[in-house]
């Protein structure tokens, strides 16, 4: 499409140029005359020198207005692109670093949390154990105390029983014998009896 249009434009341009040329030629002489003049003088060293000078003027102009600024711009553009690439690389590295840091932080906190939970669990366990131990100890104490009391009561009862038995035996013996016995005999007898009775009873 564009190509066709370009060809059309070239055709139109040439037509326009020819029209211009022809009309100018007609205006100049009514009819187109044959070319006048002669082939340019050669070598025309003035013209050659002028052309060389003009060429170098053009070269200088283009250096000033085209090559230098464009080279500078190209260089600048290269630098910009390079620096932005470098910057992007740097940012990437930074992000990677941050990510690693965050990951490390996360692991650290997870570990800490775990530690805390472990510690709390252990404390609870300890408390439980302590309570249980204390309770058991207390129970043991109570039991022992009760046992001691029972023991003491039994002992007391035993002694009372012994006294009572001795008294009864004495009374019975007095009754049986109806005579006074010496204290010595008395004591020996009673003790012997009690011991026997005690062995039997207990």
């Amino acid at each position: 499409m564009t190509k066709n249009r370009r060809y059309f434009m070239i055709l139109l341009l040439t037509l326009l140029m020819t029209l211009g040329m022809a009309s100018l030629a007609y205006a100049a002489g009514g009819v187109v005359p044959a070319p006048e003049g002669h082939t340019p003088h050669f070598p025309n060293w003035y013209a050659i020198g002028w052309t060389a000078v003009n060429f170098f003027i053009l070269l200088a102009l283009l250096y000033k207005f085209a090559f230098n600024p464009i080279n500078k711009m190209l260089e600048e553009r290269t630098n910009t692109i390079e620096s932005s690439l470098k910057h992007a690389e740097q940012v990437k590295v930074e992000v990677e670093e941050m990510r690693k840091e965050a990951q490390a932080n996360l692991a650290e906190s997870r570990k800490q949390a775990q530690e805390i939970v472990a510690r709390a669990t252990k404390a609870a366990e300890d408390a439980k154990n302590e309570i249980i131990t204390k309770a058991q100890e207390e129970a043991e104490n109570i039991r022992q105390k009760a046992y001691a009391e029972i023991q003491a009561a039994t002992e007391k009862a035993k002694i009372e029983l012994k006294d009572a038995a001795a008294m009864l035996a004495l009374m019975a013996a007095e009754k049986v014998l109806e005579r006074a016995i010496t204290d010595e005999d008395h004591k020996n007898m009673v003790t012997k009896f009690i011991n026997e009775a005690g062995d039997l009873m207990c």
């Binding site: 040439t14 326009l16 140029m17 020819t18 029209l19 211009g20 040329m21 009309s23 100018l24 030629a25 100049a28 070319p35 340019p40 050669f42 070598p43 025309n44 013209a47 050659i48 020198g49 052309t51 060389a52 060429f55």
Partner: peptide, 24 residues
Amino acid sequence: LIPGAGQIPGYQPPTANWNTTLAL
């Protein structure tokens, strides 16, 4: 190729002159 080249007095393409091309 511009209308007027070679018709307007004194105006013609410089490269049609062999002094110019010799200089180049």
